[in-house]
Design a protein around this nucleic acid. Sequence first.
RNA 1: GGAGCCGUGGUGUAGUUGGUUAACACACCGGACUGUCACUCCGGAGAUCGCGGGUUCAAGUCCCGUCGGCUCCGCCA
Length: 600
Amino acid sequence: MAGTEQELLIRTAGCGELTEKDASEGREVVLTGWVHRRRDLGQLIFIEMRDATGRLQVVFDPSLHPDAHAAAESLRAEYVIGVAGTVVMREAPNPDHPTGMIELRGQSVTVHNRADNLPIQVADQQEANEEQRLKHRYIDLRRPRLQHALRTRHRLATAAREVLDEHRFVEIETPMLTRSTPEGARDYLVPSRVHPGKFYALPQSPQLFKQLLMIAGFERYYQFARCFRDEDLRADRQPEFTQIDIEMSFVTPQQIYDLIEPLIVRMFEAIDVQIARPFPRMAHAEAVDRFGIDRPDTRFGMELRDVGAAAESTGFRVFDEPLADPGGAVRGIVVDGAGGASRKQLDTWNGWAREAGARGLLWIKSAGGKIGSSALKVLGEERCRDILRALGGGDGDAALIVAADRSLCNQVLGQLRVRIARERDRIPEGAWNLLWVEQFPLFEHDDEAGRYVAIHHPFTAPNWDEVSRLETSPGDVRSQAYDLVLNGTEIGGGSIRIHRRDVQDRVFEALGIGAEEAEEKFGFLLRALDSGAPPHGGIALGFDRICAMLAGTDSIREVIAFPKTTSASCLMTESPAEVDAQQLTELGLKTLESRGKKGD
RNA sequence: GGAGCCGUGGUGUAGUUGGUUAACACACCGGACUGUCACUCCGGAGAUCGCGGGUUCAAGUCCCGUCGGCUCCGCCA
């Protein structure tokens, strides 16, 4: 039996791999791993040992192996050890544990390394706060939950690669050091030493490169692409994130769906969930009208409706003003079963509506035939009853109404709908609603900038039969873009791209990007379009978000090994950090004194 | 850029209307224990309450500022 430190380094089995068969054979093994827990009974010492394959109980019995038992007395949580021994059936089995029927009878043990009293307790179900977890990420990652999350991520990546490979896609890497592009998010910049005063930008996505790969004739490309955006962060946004970036030549949106749907289905299979195909589709306009948002959560009802005739000629200014405005509306949702909602409850909802941008929320409730409303005096009982009915509600229900610009109504009610559904537990467990949203407008008007901006990006193709309207009514042109939505979260988006120079020129023109600027910023793309560019299109899937959802967590930080905080810092490496003056000089850079230092 | 919540031994929390020895659990140290499995039992050490300022006879507790974490709005083609 092995006994030296060197011998106890060479493992012959994994903790989670051993079975009752090994026990019945009395197999002798060497295990390496961490002390997960210890239970010292004085004579008998039990150690739960953990490695990447799982956990196994090791027992040290002084009457059998006194030296090993003596050595085991010094073991503490998270010590790294090697143990040699015999796999045996337990005297007192524990069916709650995967390896609970067997144990290792420790014959010799060595400590490969000790561990301090750690800031995060691996074996404890009690969670450290996120600041501690991020600072000591290498310990946090030992915890079963994060081990599981990252292993799930790997399985999903593998599933996607398999499907793409089966469809003859080629994985091609594109540059991380590229040039800054106008439009879109803020870039992360990298100064050039060789070209003082000039900067690379880290890619917000490999958009242009993948189009160029189509022009280069690869026809089917994919990449697990790291993307960088210097914008404010959220639970589902990190400054660097991963997209499954896909592009195909000679395709219609239908062909993209026909590829992506099986890919998504296969990813779900990796977590043992069956998903039905084809995924439903919805026009952007319908999504906004029914759900108030372009990424509707279709797992529950409470859809938005216009109050319609019931709101007309009431003499109520709150209604009359929006209705007199061509862009205004009076819209509402019905919370069924909320007819008896308390004043406090309604105030809470009103507060949410205000947070979402509304000036106020009007409510009508009906319980036992008795009407209550924040506008009862102005509207009267009959009118209130009409409005409730117009929104699809009846006795026992409550209607929540917003009168404002149509887009603000949608925004407020769309947010309210989701928040109330969560509050009232209206979202079914275990439902996975996938949905294609299509027929987006090509542009939307940016009132601040006083011009049109691309809703998707400037390379998105308009519907080919609407190209003629690019100059006359750009706001009405629809694009060949599509988003993939899962339970109200956008998990992917793409489009058919513009492959003809003349169309691209006209889109740039509509966006207020002049020929000169287009040439300077995108000259390489324009020339490429003139070199025999095939019709092409693709999609980018938000891999972190997909992983988070399928791993059952709300935050993508849980599926990223080393994530950053909401202020884009890494608490472990303490980046970003200041650099030597010499480095700056070499790069031709100088920092502004006035910006002040943080962290003092 | 804005709003909200949070910051107390190594870790997670408690700490009523400001009142004198800052409590509990886990981890840690010592002791007891031969079948535990979140082992149990006994004992011990360990925090001046993120930082700075203010109010007060008195501040973990109230006020202001600041730093950090989280959530949301704006932003993110």
